[in-house]
Simulated assay, not measured.
Amino acid sequence: MADSLFTDFAFSFPLSATVITTEDGQRVLDYIRSTENPVATILVGETDKDVMAPYIVSFSSRGPNPITPDILKPDLTAPGVDILAAWSPVAPPSIDFEDTRSVEYNIISGTSMSCPHASGAAAYVKAAHPKWSAAAIKSALMTTAHVLDPKKNDELEFAYGSGHINPLKAVKPGLVFDASEADYVHFLCKQGYNTTTLKLITGDNSSS
């Protein structure tokens, strides 16, 4: 059984299994205790259209930004649930640390799985605009992101930021907000950094 908060992504088990909520687990136990010969069947998996998608998974970090509310956190979202990815053959393929099987690929969920998607999208935009800065590329990805349904995420922008990443639109954003090192220095100064603390960040002779 599992808390309903963690049923929006899957785990790899060493045997056929399913994750259910605590409430459904109680119903199963009630059935077992009230039936002389209880029977359970695990059916072949089917693919259903998730009418709620895309939405923010429970393990995703939420805003607001703890350092300064002037920076959107998260900035945008990318696919990170049940992603087929390379896997170390010396690591257990399931959540059982005694699982001795070895695989080269596995189904993984996590914010680290969305990072390659975002990085690939950034590289895609960079290929179309080789002279764009990292800030310009980030701007393009954020301003063209797919707007998520606020009814599906109680935390709104503190959950999905500017929206779900859309690399195809990011190539032609129409408007790009660029930022230089000087812009970041000015921002830190406005946040209350003095010359001493500013130099700890920049590592140069910047002054506030």
Rank of each mutant, 00 (worst) to 15 (best):
P54H: 08
I56H: 03
V57S: 15
F59A: 07
F59P: 08
S60I: 07
P64F: 13
N65M: 08
D70R: 13
I71D: 01
L72T: 14
K73G: 04
K73L: 15
T77L: 15
G80I: 07
G80D: 07
G80W: 07
G80R: 02
V81G: 04
V81P: 04
I83C: 07
A85V: 15
A86G: 07
A86Y: 07
W87Y: 15
P89F: 07
P89I: 14
V90N: 13
D96L: 11
E98A: 11
D99R: 06
R101C: 00
S102T: 15
Y105Q: 14
Y105H: 13
S109R: 04
S109H: 03
G110F: 11
S119D: 00
A121M: 06
A121P: 04
A123N: 10
A123K: 05
Y124V: 07
V125L: 03
K126C: 02
A127F: 03
A127P: 01
P130Y: 10
K131C: 00
K131V: 03
S133T: 15
A134I: 09
A134Q: 06
A135S: 14
A136P: 01
A140N: 08
A140V: 09
A140P: 03
L141W: 03
T144M: 04
V147H: 09
L148Q: 08
K151Y: 04
K151S: 14
K152W: 08
L156H: 09
L156P: 00
E157S: 12
A159V: 08
G163Q: 03
G163I: 06
G163V: 01
H164E: 12
H164F: 15
I165P: 02
A170H: 06
K172H: 10
P173Y: 09
G174S: 10
G174R: 05
L175M: 06
A179Y: 02
A179V: 00
S180A: 10
Y184D: 01
Y184N: 01
Y184E: 00
V185L: 00
H186D: 14
F187Y: 15
L188D: 00
L188R: 06
K190L: 12
G192H: 13
N194D: 15
T196D: 12
T196M: 05
T196Y: 12
T197P: 00
